[in-house]
Write a protein that binds this DNA or RNA. Sequence first.
DNA 1: ACCTGAACACCGTTCAAGT
DNA 2: ACCTGAACACCGTTCAAGT
Lengths: 222, 222
Amino acid sequence: VIVATAVSLADSEGLEAVSIRRVAAALDARPMSIYSFAAIDRKEELMDLMVDDVCAELLLPEGLPQHWRDALHAVAVRTRAVLVRHPWWIELIGRHTLVGPNGMRYREQTLAAVADLEIDVSLKMALVTAVETYTVGQAALAVDTTGPVARQSRSCQDQRQADRSYQQTLISTGEFPHLARIGSAWPEAPADRERFFLLGLDWLLSGAKAALADSGRRPSTR
Amino acid sequence: VIVATAVSLADSEGLEAVSIRRVAAALDARPMSIYSFAAIDRKEELMDLMVDDVCAELLLPEGLPQHWRDALHAVAVRTRAVLVRHPWWIELIGRHTLVGPNGMRYREQTLAAVADLEIDVSLKMALVTAVETYTVGQAALAVDTTGPVARQSRSCQDQRQADRSYQQTLISTGEFPHLARIGSAWPEAPADRERFFLLGLDWLLSGAKAALADSGRRPSTR
DNA sequence: ACCTGAACACCGTTCAAGT
DNA sequence: ACCTGAACACCGTTCAAGT
């Protein structure tokens, strides 16, 4: 209950708005009652619980496709969707390693996706890690500046304008020929970013499939 | 000068130790002199400068290999090495988009890596983005708990022990058959993580190469 | 014994008082 | 005019004073 309000506070106002005092206030509780309650001795522990809480959303209730490639694809797409909803998650994941029960269920789900693959267990881990890595990276870089949070839409908009014109100034020095040529291909719209994400995910999965087929004891192209 | 001390403070004591007051103290300056100086009106602007400062380290001074695949590989390996040195960077990159001059030089370098590829400019962006995404993701997930920072080596060690035994308890419930079977293949040592990183990077690059060769106007396998 | 509010040591930022 | 220290509104955490 308490971590749910912390999560929704982080969603709507950003991670820096999540303070022990504000969470307590949102619950109409006295500021310090959080410490007495629920095994939270430090703020970090609340963060741990928040991380694990969104891990529950990463689980695919309807189960996984049978082919490992489709399964990993589904997991990655789902994970990306969830992390877009909770942009603060990736700020936390560096320090707070996935350790709670929901995090472990997520790991279990991802491993189940490659369970049928007949390759070395270490290679399985590498494959799962690669996909997870790519997905988390996408979430880290794709923080949506057009999203609902967009702190103070007015000043944020101004900031983007200023950044843009500053970049134009730098480009006009001629130091960045390739950047200048890119121009409009820069991915800004969320739809573009999703297209890029899916493209790279396909490359990664295809490359892994080819490499595993080459080196596998049995080709296991299914 | 001022951002350099902020960077080294973040490296040695973590990002949360970087406060306007502490940076000023480290410089033997009065706490508020930072605001008067160097176009810093808010702490966020200091963070912007810190992000751009490490971007300078991302540049490969010796130039890039000619083949796009080797070039992207070199950029990714370099980027990973730098981000391992500055773990706090990825916490910042979500909010502070790459906008400074060094950040743009980095982008320019990455685009130069694929300049010879004769494919659509949008595909070039997708390729560059995919590699960058994967690399940043690795940095986000691979925060080194054995590293020199490892806040309060004593309590951190204890924490890891507690986490470990908690996981064992959960595994012993039998809810996680695949996780149980992984066991020792879990990547903990930095060397393991680097091996995994290189494996996934090869998959990604191979997959991209194959896909681009298929769909390119000219195959351009070079 | 347990909860809880005042208190402590910080933080980012402002702003008026000095030079 | 410009720098700067006190002041303000916060924060996480502690701890003694209440029930």
